[in-house]
Design a protein around this nucleic acid. Structure first.
Lengths: 334, 334
DNA sequence: CGACGGTTCGAAAACGTTATCGATACCGAT
DNA sequence: ATCGGTATCGATAACGTTTTCGAACCGTCG
C-alpha cells in the first residue's frame, strides 16, 4: 500500500528552484512573490501534475474547499436536489460530495450527527443536510438545512412554501367540485408534512367544508406505507371522491392501489400529489401535482452555504414558491 | 474560522491519564495495551465524543476508510447503482462518498481523471467509476469501473451481459412476429452500446432476417438525443413495426414521440428498452425491457473494490446476467 | 540473586501543508 | 557612501495522527 507517484510540494519547489513556502504562496495566490516566479512555479506545477494533498491541507488550514450534501437515501426527491446542487457548485471553486446514510428504513435517527461529526472540520468545509433531525452544530462549521424536521431550527434553511402549495392543491380539488377530500399526510415529525396538512385544513375551512377526520390519515412519505393507507381510505363505505396525497410517492402509490381495486382514475377518483418529481409525469395517468422547484432548492441551498462560509450577510431562510401542475389525474366531480 | 470544540486525541489521552500513543492503539485495535486501559480509554472516547481527524489520519497513514463513487450525473441509472453501493458499504467499516462531475452535457472528457487525481491518496482509499473514459490509474490506488467505455480496459470491471440482453430483446420481438425492427443505439464510444447493437445484429442474423440499415441509428443515451432519432425512424415511409431502444431513457422518449405522432403503442408499434430503471414500470404503457441488476451491480462493484484494497485474490471482472421483463409495450404483429 | 522474556506504556519522529517572520536584495534619495 | 523602504524569498514551527522503539516493570527460571 504505497503511493510512490504522488508529487508533493517539495518536489515542485526543488525543480522550480524555490522553497516550499513560495510554492504554497503561488498555489494560494498570496501576495509577495514576483510575477516571473509565479509563472515559473505555475509551469512546474502543471508539468509535474501537482495536486495539493487534501489531508495535509485540511490539517494545517482547516479548509478543504470541499462541501458535502447529506441525504438519507438516493431517491427521486434527493436526486433532484443533488442535480441542482451539483450544477450550482461548478465554477465556485468548491468540490461537492454527496453522502448517504445508506442504512435503510430503521436506521438510527442520529446518523446525520455522527456523519457530520466525522466529516466536519476535517473533510468538508460545510454541508447541506436534507431533511435533518439535528439542530445543533458546532461553532465554525456551516450547515444549511433543506426541508427540516419540525421544531424551531436555528439553522439556515431553504424550503418551499408547503402551506401555500397545500392550499393550492386543496383549492384545485374544491374548484373541481369535490367535497369529500381525503388527505394522506407524511411523517408527522416532518415540518413539511405538518404544513401540508395545515394548508389542507385551512383551505377546507376557508371554503366552509368540514373535513371528515376519518379521511385524513398518516401514510408516511415512503411508497410502502402509503399503499396501506390508501387502501384503507378507498375501502371506506363512503370513500372520498378525491385524495390529496402528501407527496408524489404516496400519490403514485394511491394510483396503484386504485387500479388494483378497480377504481378508475380520474373518473371515479381524483388524485393530486406534491413535489413534482420526474416520475409523476410518467405515470398513468400523468399526475396532477404541486411543483416544488427541487433543483432550484438544491442550487439555492448550496449558494446559501457558500455565502455563509464566505461570511456574506444575507437572509438565511429561503422559501421558494410552489405552483400547481395540472396533468390528468383529477377531473371535475359530476 | 476556528473550530474550538473539536476534541482531539491528546484531550482523550490527558483525561484518561495515558499517552496519545496508547489512545491511538486503542482506537485502531492494536496489540499491546492492557484490557483495563482499553476499557478506560474507550469510556473516555465515548464520553468526550472523540472522532478521529480524517485529515491528520490520512496525512499520516494514507488511509481514510472512505471510498468514492464517481458518476457523470445523478440520473436514474446512476442512482440505482448508488443505492446498491451504499447498501453494500454499510457495516464494511468504510464510508461512501458520491461524486458527480456536475458539469452537464458538454463537459470536458477528462473530468474523472482530474477528480480522481485530487481525491485519490488523500481523501479516499479507492473509487468505483461509472462509465469511465480513463484507463490508467496510479499505482496503489484502486478503482473499479462500471460499464466502461470501449477499449481494452486494464481496470477491474463489473457490468451486465449486454450482448446476451440484446439478443434476448431482439429474439422477443422476433418471436412476436416482427421483422422490420429498428434499433436506436447509444453513444458509440460506450462499450455497452456497442455490445447491445452487436447482440441485436447477431440475433437478427441467427433468425435469418436482414437488418435494414436505415433502421439502425445512433440516438445517444440521453433523452433529448433519442427523441430526434425516434422521430426520424417513425417518419420513414415504411416505418419499423418494432423498435429496440438502446436504453430505457430512449425507449421512454420513443414512447413520447410515438404518442405525439399519433402512433398507438403497442398496437401499431412495439417498443422494448434496456436497463429496467424504475421509471420504466411507471410509463404508459409500462415498458417491456431488459433488466440489468443495477443495484446489484453497484453492490458488487463496491464489494470488489473493498476486496481489492484488502488484497484478496479474486476474479476482477464481474458480469451479471440480464433478463427479459415483459410489460405492455410490445405485442404480436398481426 | 541475576538474567531474562513478556507485557504495558510513552517519547518522538514522521506525514505534506500553511503561516509567520526574519533575511536579503534592490532602489532612489540624501 | 549611507540609509530607509519595498519587494521577494526561505527557515521553521505548527496542525493531529500513527508508528517505531526503547523504558519500565513484573514474575520466573536457572
Amino acid at each position: 500500500m504505497t503511493f510512490p507517484q504522488r508529487v508533493k510540494m517539495s518536489d515542485v519547489a526543488r525543480t522550480a528552484g524555490v522553497s516550499v513556502a513560495t510554492v504554497s504562496k503561488v498555489v494560494n495566490g498570496r501576495y509577495g512573490v514576483a510575477q516571473a516566479t509565479v509563472e515559473r512555479v505555475r509551469q512546474v506545477i502543471h508539468d509535474l501534475g501537482y495536486e495539493a494533498d487534501l489531508g495535509a491541507q485540511s490539517l494545517r488550514s482547516h479548509r478543504t474547499n470541499v462541501l458535502g450534501i447529506l441525504v438519507a437515501e438516493f431517491e427521486p426527491f434527493s436526486t433532484e436536489l443533488l442535480k441542482g446542487a451539483s450544477r450550482e457548485v461548478a465554477g465556485s471553486g468548491y468540490q461537492l460530495l454527496a453522502y448517504s446514510s445508506g442504512d435503510g428504513e430503521g436506521a438510527a435517527i442520529g446518523w446525520e450527527r455522527r456523519s457530520l461529526a466525522r466529516l466536519s472540520g476535517t473533510l468538508i468545509d460545510g454541508a447541506v443536510i436534507v431533511t435533518p433531525t439535528v439542530v445543533e452544530t458546532k461553532h465554525g462549521f456551516h450547515v444549511v438545512a433543506v426541508d427540516p424536521h419540525t421544531g424551531p431550527s436555528g439553522l439556515p434553511t431553504v424550503d418551499s412554501d408547503n402551506f401555500a402549495g397545500a392550499v393550492l392543491a386543496t383549492n384545485y380539488l374544491l374548484s373541481l367540485g369535490h367535497r369529500r377530500i381525503g388527505h394522506i399526510s407524511g411523517r408527522p415529525d416532518l415540518e413539511s408534512a405538518r404544513l401540508r396538512e395545515a394548508g389542507f385544513r385551512q383551505a377546507m375551512a376557508d371554503a366552509g367544508v368540514a373535513v371528515d377526520e376519518r379521511l385524513v390519515r398518516v401514510g408516511g412519505f415512503r411508497i410502502e406505507g402509503a399503499a396501506g393507507t390508501a387502501a384503507e381510505l378507498l375501502a371506506l363505505p363512503d370513500r372520498p371522491t378525491a385524495i390529496f396525497a402528501g407527496n408524489d410517492l404516496s400519490a403514485i402509490s394511491t394510483l396503484d392501489v386504485a387500479r388494483s381495486m378497480g377504481i378508475p382514475v380520474p373518473d371515479d377518483l381524483s388524485v393530486i400529489g406534491f413535489d413534482n418529481v420526474p416520475e409523476s409525469a410518467l405515470v398513468d395517468p400523468p399526475l396532477t401535482t404541486i411543483r416544488q422547484p427541487l433543483q432550484r432548492m438544491g442550487a439555492e441551498s448550496l449558494r446559501l452555504l457558500i455565502d455563509l462560509i464566505a461570511g456574506v450577510e444575507r437572509d438565511a431562510h429561503i422559501r421558494l414558491p410552489t405552483e400547481l401542475v395540472v396533468r390528468a389525474s383529477c377531473r371535475p366531480l359530476d
